[in-house]
Nucleic acid binder design. Structure first.
Lengths: 68, 68
DNA sequence: ACAAAAAGCAATATATATGTTACATTATAA
DNA sequence: TTATAATGTAACATATATATTGCTTTTTGT
């Protein structure tokens, strides 16, 4: 579950803890999402988008993997 | 949790059951998402987008509600 | 109006996103 | 180097997304 959370979080100069506070989750949750180890809920995705001023597509879109 | 799943599902001429099969969940899950009673995971949102040929922003974006 | 398909919905069960706590590792600044 | 902040990560607990089953209601076509 690749995404651009870290890139945009750094762009707006927030630590994981600060972003977590802004969106109402724990730092661990942000860490795991950035590491691609979580499959976040839509609501949390949207909160993160609002916090970094980006769209869902910019932060979370991934192309469909071609079914090999 | 408003979204445009139903609109785009109908556009590509799929029933809830057919969409559910395509994305690998049950019909009930699709129904509840369309009704706005579920907060789906990102992976499922993406699967739905692939199935209806739309982007995350088109199907699931909602503006931040101004904190009144 | 009738039959069939599609969709709504409720109760219970399961899987997993997220929280909590705690500690380890890495980066940053003095 | 040393102290501190930032980040990684693990174990266990909790909340909730999703499954399962079954039945009801609505929609659609004839």
């Amino acid at each position: 579950m690749k995404n651009n959370v870290k890139i945009y979080r750094v762009q707006v100069d927030l630590t994981q803890q600060q972003l977590a506070d802004k969106v109402g989750v724990t730092r661990q949750t942000i860490s795991l999402i950035e590491k691609g180890k979580y499959n976040p809920t839509l609501k949390l995705c949207l909160e993160i988008c609002y916090a970094v001023n980006k769209s869902l597509d910019e932060v979370f879109w991934v192309e469909k993997e071609s079914d090999h």
